[in-house]
Amino acid sequence: MHPIYTPTSHLSESHSSKIHLSKSYELTEAGDRYFDGLAEKFSRSLYQAPRGELRLAMLDYLLPQMLHLEAQPVLDVGGGLGQLAAWLAERGHAVTMAEPSQDMLTHASAWHAERGAAGTLLSDQLCYLAAPLQALPQQAPGPWPLITCHAVLEWLGEPRLAMQILASLLAPGGQLSLMVFNRDALRFSNVVKGNLQKALSDQLAGKGKRQRLTPISPVTHDEICQWGADNGLIMEGVAGVRVFQDYLRQPPEKESDQAALLALEKQYCRQDPHWRLGRYLLYTFTKPEADV
């Protein structure tokens, strides 16, 4: 099994120093949040921390179960730092990675190039597209047999419209791997932390300002189910990612405890009711072969 790696642990100082870090943290005209200037923060906060490591380990575990992976071409929407694109390329897929943030795209392509030079990745199986999700019908129309869109919808002003666009890009019989930040888990986490009034008033969304990484549009399972059905997609499976970790009073320090936590996450990530409180919800949708 090819693990999903943490990019910055492999990115050289020379490449890192070439990444332009702008300070544009405002929302776009469409109400979306891009991450120019935040590639390093993303890597430190999300992927070099235990929560990020567990998220990647769970994707490594779940994606082969939830997708029919047959080395088909993939459109990776909002590919971020490039972990998923690299994982797919290592499995023989030709990957088009679309990402609106030039900083993130530069970071990902530099890391992929280093992995290619080291012989661990066929970098010629990756191509890059500096484009937001809304531009993909013009710039990458497909239709695509496999689309991955992980942790993107919650950073958009109109996540429902994004689901419509993703469905339009899928080929008949194609698969969509969708991962979203779970609004219900965000509420529960705020209660656990003692933010009772915030949870009671349901003021959970972030503002998209400065360097804060609270999603501006966290979504619910019911919303995703409805949006999929509205666009003629069939939900084939769902799993919770980080079902337990975010609610621990003390993060595990010993390797044996970390292994036990991972085993628990794997055991219950698809079992009701536990998956419903995953920090992220991971879905597989398919597009019917013909209209029904």
Results as ranks from 00 to 15, higher is better:
M1H: 13
Y5I: 14
L11A: 00
E13R: 15
K18R: 15
H20T: 12
H20P: 07
H20A: 11
S22I: 12
T28E: 05
T28R: 02
E29N: 14
A30Y: 07
A30C: 09
R33P: 03
F35A: 07
D36W: 04
D36I: 09
K41A: 15
F42H: 15
S43F: 00
R44I: 15
L46C: 15
L46W: 15
Y47P: 04
Q48L: 14
Q48C: 10
E53T: 12
L56Q: 14
M58R: 01
L59G: 09
L59K: 12
D60M: 00
L62V: 08
Q65C: 04
M66D: 11
Q72D: 04
D76E: 08
G79R: 01
L81F: 02
A86V: 02
E90L: 10
P100W: 07
A108M: 09
A110V: 00
H112C: 15
G116A: 03
G116F: 04
A118E: 10
L121V: 02
L122T: 09
S123W: 05
D124W: 08
D124F: 05
A131N: 02
L136M: 05
P137Q: 09
A140Y: 02
G142Q: 04
G142R: 04
P145I: 09
L146C: 12
L146H: 07
H150T: 12
E154H: 06
W155S: 05
E158P: 02
P159K: 05
P159Y: 09
R160H: 12
R160M: 10
A162D: 03
M163Y: 03
M163C: 12
Q164Y: 03
Q164S: 10
I165A: 00
A167S: 15
S168D: 13
L169V: 04
G173A: 07
Q175S: 10
L176K: 04
S177A: 14
S177L: 13
V180F: 00
N182C: 00
D184M: 06
A185F: 01
S189H: 13
Q197I: 11
Q197R: 12
K198R: 13
L200D: 07
Q203V: 06
A205I: 02
G206A: 05
R212K: 00
L213T: 08
S217E: 02
D222I: 05
W227C: 01
W227Q: 04
A229C: 03
D230S: 03
G232F: 00
G232S: 02
M235R: 11
E236G: 10
G237T: 08
A239Q: 05
Y247A: 06
L248C: 02
P251E: 14
P252D: 08
K254I: 00
S256K: 13
R270K: 14
D272L: 13
G278P: 08
G278R: 07
L282V: 02
T284S: 12
K287D: 06
P288Y: 05
P288Q: 07
E289Y: 14
A290P: 01
D291S: 14
V292T: 15
